[in-house]
Each structure stands twice: as C-alpha cells, then as structure tokens.
C-alpha cells in the first residue's frame, strides 16, 4: 500500500451523511478520525476550537476541519477523512457538502491537500467531489498527481 492510500483509505470515506448543523458535522468528523485511529478525543474536541478562530470553509461547498497547532500532540498518525453531506450543512452562512477532516503532525498530507486544491480550482471536478457515489471516486479525485515541472 502506498503512503497516500494509508493517509486516505476507503474506510475513511463516508457518503450520504446527514448533520443538523456545523457542530454535529464536526462531531462526526472528529469521531471518524478517532475511529480510524488517527487521533484521540482531545483532538476531536480541538476541531471545534479551531473553527471558532477562523472557519475552515475553503470554497466550492468544502470545509477542511482540523485541530489547533497545540492539539497536534493528540494525533496518533497522519490521516484524512472524507465526509459527504448531500443535503448540505450551514457553515457560518456557507453551505458545506463535503468535509475533508485532517490529522497531521507535519508534511505527510501536503500532496493530498494539493490535489484537493487543484480539484477546487476546477468547478467540474469540485462538483464530482461533492456528488461522488463511491469511495473509489473520492480516492481517485484526491490522489496526488506527479509534480509537473
């Protein structure tokens, strides 16, 4: 298994979820990171704390919840999770359809986030990310591309 697929595995892709509000969505994101062995409850709590300083909404219906700088010590291993909310979740006035939850101590996840940034720059790909119907779709959209020099 490549390091990338360990970072975001099919078991961390959750489709068709519902959440009444941002707090509930963050609870689910935190619980997912705990469930896959990426972090402890204390890190899950820090997702809420981080949102109170600046929203992690990044555009195109996507938010990237993660902990605070101080909460890094509660990360067990670097991992990401994908949570899809087809009905949308109100996120401080924006509507979020996808959360990409992040637990990372250093640079392990940079390639996947770069892939996410490229997806969000392309409205058609962003739409695919929001409406993915299988874990494979999600994993292939977020697989790091070779560096283009």
């Amino acid at each position: 298994m490549s390091p990338e697929s360990q970072l975001l595995g099919a078991n961390a892709v959750r489709l068709g979820l519902t959440a009444a509000d941002k707090t509930e969505a963050l609870n689910q994101a935190g619980a997912l990171l705990v469930e896959i062995g990426a972090a402890t409850e204390a890190y899950a709590d820090a997702l809420h704390e981080r949102e109170t300083s600046v929203s992690t909404y990044v555009g195109e219906g996507v938010a990237i919840p993660h902990g605070t700088n101080e909460s890094r010590e509660y990360i067990e291993r670097a991992a990401l999770g994908y949570l899809q909310f087809p009905e949308g979740v109100d996120w401080d006035g924006e509507t979020v359809y996808v959360c990409v939850a992040i637990a990372s101590k250093s640079e392990e996840h940079v390639d996947i986030l770069s892939a996410l940034a490229q997806v969000l720059m392309d409205p058609a790909k962003a739409e695919q990310l929001r409406t993915a119907t299988s874990a494979d779709d999600v994993l292939s959209l977020l697989s790091p591309e070779p560096n283009q020099e």
Partner: peptide
Amino acid sequence: CDAGMGSSVM
C-alpha cells in the same frame, strides 16, 4: 494559518 495544517497548505 492558525495551525499550519489545512488552509495554508492549500
């Protein structure tokens, strides 16, 4: 960014 983990990376 706040944690140097998410948005600043993107």
